[in-house]
């Protein structure tokens, strides 16, 4: 789909009809069908699931490709830039609320459901259960060790914080139109991100093989893996975003005035960073 500024004044941008949204819808329907069926052990489930992913990736490439082309064609004026900024801020806010649900679950479990299960009321049911944290609950009684904060998690904290700094250096380089510096520091940020993810995977392996800490290890395992897992997933997305930005920088995109995509990715990266700090304190330290 080609785009045009339509018949608008320079101020507004209204894109031409596009088939990407419907491709996205087909992708999600396929994905959902594949997920539902494979979760319920239907034999053709998995292929459908993969097909859904494939269509989704095709859509993302296509749609973002169009947007990048429009952006580089300088079809987006100041007004569009402001719209993008509003939308990215609200999107990040929605992500914050998504994490809030899981942090809420963790807080509720620690401060409410586990103490309740160990309370005098529940003694009749679970006489031996001591309400301590971490816990895998009164019935599962899995023996496990929680993940200590001062090993890999502390290193990971340092990595992510450093990546925030390197990203800011890259940002300044971009504002100074200093391209090689931009590329260098952006690449450094991505490498830090990937190192973080690698250590995270290592930590998971360690948890499963040595600590007997699993997703199925009661409420501690559930909250631990869901929170760190969704965070890791978001780091992955952020790293992919930054990689796209890196390639675009290498192709000469972005300058001191025209760089919303860079900032959006950077905001997202900082958001992921802040979530990690929350995780480090609440999940690992406390």
């Amino acid at each position: 789909m080609s785009a045009s500024t339509s018949a608008n004044s320079g101020k507004y941008f209204v894109p031409q009809p596009s088939h990407w949204p419907i491709v996205g819808s087909v992708a999600l329907l396929t994905l959902a069908t594949g997920a539902v069926t494979s979760l319920n052990e239907v034999s053709w489930g998995l292929p459908v699931l993969y097909a859904g992913f494939a269509i989704l990736i095709y859509m993302l490439f296509g749609w973002f490709g169009v947007v990048i082309k429009e952006s580089e064609g300088r079809l987006y004026g100041k007004n569009v830039d402001a719209s993008f900024r509003w939308s990215m801020s609200w999107f990040i806010f929605s992500e914050v609320m998504f994490f809030a649900a899981f942090f809420g679950a963790l807080g509720y479990a620690r401060m409410h459901s586990v103490p309740d299960l160990g309370s005098i009321d529940a003694k009749l049911l679970w006489p031996e259960f001591a309400a301590t944290w971490p816990s895998s609950g009164p019935y599962l009684k899995e023996v496990f060790s929680p993940m200590g904060a001062w090993g890999i998690p502390a290193i990971n904290t340092a990595l992510l914080l450093t990546s925030g700094v390197t990203l800011t250096i890259a940002h300044h380089a971009m504002l100074e139109n200093h391209r090689s510096k931009l590329i260098l520091w952006l690449a450094a940020t991505i490498i830090l991100g990937i190192t973080f993810l690698t250590l995270q995977v290592y930590e998971y392996v360690h948890a499963y093989s040595e600590l007997n800490l699993k997703l199925t290890t009661g409420i501690f395992g559930s909250t631990f893996f869901m929170l760190t897992g969704f965070h890791g997933f978001h780091v992955t997305i952020g790293a992919i975003m930054l990689t796209v930005i890196l390639f675009r920088s290498m192709r000469g995109h972005f300058d001191d005035k025209h760089h919303f995509a860079f900032e959006a990715a950077a905001w997202y990266w900082h958001f992921v960073d802040v979530v990690w700090l929350g995780l480090f304190v609440i999940v690992y330290m406390l």
């Binding site: 586990v114 609950g137 599962l140 997703l215 409420i219």
Partner: peptide, 24 residues
């Protein structure tokens, strides 16, 4: 988030909403 926890409780063995594992 809530329905995601339902999904993992249903299929992946988490215990957010299951007292046996310390959930509720």
């Amino acid at each position: 988030g809530a329905v995601t926890m339902l999904l993992t409780d249903r299929h992946f063995g988490t215990t957010f909403f299951n007292a046996a594992g310390g959930g509720d």
